[in-house]
Each structure stands twice: as C-alpha cells, then as structure tokens.
Computed example of a mutant assay.
Amino acid sequence: LSPSMCDRLCSTDDCMPGTGVYLRHGYIYSSLAGYVLRKNEGEELPVISVVRETEAQLLPDVGAIVTCKVTSINPRFAKVHILYVGSTPLKDRFRGTIRKEDVRATEKDRVETYKSFRPGDIVLAKVISLGDVQSNYLLTTAENELGVVVAHSEAGAQMVPISWFEMQCPRTHAKEFRKVARVQPEYLQA
C-alpha cells in the first residue's frame, strides 16, 4: 500500500490492471490519487489497483488491539471474527484464532477454552501473528486488559464481571466462567 498519483506502476508483463488504473503502451498507470493495492490471485500475475485514501482497507497488524466476536470454540482454541482494529470498524471480515495457550499469561496448561469464551462473546485481543488467505490471524488475551468485554447469559441478559474469571447474570444471578478483560474507567486512563 503506497501513495500514487498518475504514476507508472508496472509493465503489463508483470501485472494485470485492476480498478483505478489505465493501460498505455504496455504499462499500467494510476488514474487517480490514492493507494496502490497489489493482490496475487493464485498462479496468475498480480492485479494492481489504486483506491482513494478513504477506501484503503485498514488491516489488523501485529501488536494491534482488536475487538472480535467469538464464533465457535473447541478444547484447543476459539474462532473469532475481527470487527474493529482499535476503534475503526473493518469493512471486510477477518478471521482470528485464540489458541488455548494464548488465553492467559499464567497457568497456561490449566486453561480450558469453554471456561474462557462462549460463542457470541465480544473480546478484546491483541494480534500476535498475521494470517494469509487460507489461515487466520493469531490473537492473544494474555494481558489483564484483554479478554471478554461483553457476554450474554443463557437467559439473554448482558452479564456483569464479578472477578477476572467469572461473570454473573443480573437476572438469574447464575455465574459463568470467562477470561474477563479488566476494563479501566475512562477517567483513570492516561
């Protein structure tokens, strides 16, 4: 992703034209001011496009804090859809995985995925490894500020955190295990 305006981007021997570009004398040129996107579509030549700054897709990057929704769990990991990078909503859907060993910083061998997350939970996590087309982003919740921020009980009520590993339904007072994020009130944040 790099800025461009009416630049010669590449030869038609090296790339295929996408959106926001035009062909002239065997070369691909940018037809608007924006960012160059280069996508490899399988075995073919990469497709080169130019998008305006407002259309440039923000991507989850290593170290970024993301907000995601748990879609499924099994004993080894939780699958999630990444919804936000920081406070910016994503246009495209990105998948992530929180492995059992990346849930907590301590007692990693005693973590049970179903006692940390449930499908539908909203989780704050940090990106630890980038995915590719076939795989997911690897995420961690192994910091106090990371983990479940919104969960609903079986009765459908939004649950309230009562410790770093439990949430309670305000209607039924039933308790459920979660890896709870320690969310600081805004007036305490620097």
Rank of each mutant, 00 (worst) to 15 (best):
Y29F: 15
E186Q: 13
S72E: 14
K126R: 15
E166K: 04
V51E: 04
A33E: 08
D92S: 11
A64I: 02
L9K: 08
T71S: 15
P60L: 03
A33R: 05
A181M: 05
L83F: 13
P161G: 05
D109E: 15
L83I: 15
R118S: 10
L124C: 04
V160S: 08
G96D: 01
V123K: 07
I98N: 02
K108G: 13
E107N: 10
I65G: 12
T140R: 02
V111Y: 07
Y187I: 09
A78I: 15
Y137F: 07
S153W: 04
V150W: 09
E101V: 13
D7Q: 10
F165E: 11
I65E: 14
H173D: 03
H173S: 09
I162G: 05
V160A: 10
V36C: 00
V133R: 01
F177Y: 15
R8T: 03
L9N: 00
L146V: 08
A151G: 04
L32W: 03
A155P: 00
M16R: 12
D102R: 14
V66I: 15
E53A: 11
V148L: 07
G131C: 01
C169G: 06
D61N: 01
G42N: 10
V70E: 03
E43L: 13
D13C: 05
D61P: 03
Q189P: 00
A190Y: 04
V85E: 07
K108C: 09
D13W: 14
T140V: 13
T12S: 12
S31E: 12
S11L: 08
R104A: 09
R171F: 03
A151V: 05
K69Q: 15
D121H: 08
E186K: 10
E154L: 12
G34M: 12
F165K: 03
D13G: 04
I48Q: 08
K179F: 01
P17E: 10
I48S: 00
N136M: 04
V85L: 09
N136S: 08
L139K: 03
L124Y: 03
K69H: 07
K79M: 13
A157S: 11
N40F: 10
R8W: 04
G147A: 09
P161Q: 01
W164P: 02
E166V: 04
T172Q: 14
T113L: 13
C6F: 15
P89F: 14
L83A: 11
L138W: 02
E101I: 14
L83E: 14
S49G: 10
L9M: 00
K175R: 15
D132C: 01
K79T: 14
Q184E: 14
C169T: 02
R171V: 13
R104C: 11
P75F: 10
L58D: 00
G147T: 08
N40K: 07
G96R: 03
V180G: 00
G42Q: 00
Q168E: 05
Q168V: 05
L9C: 02
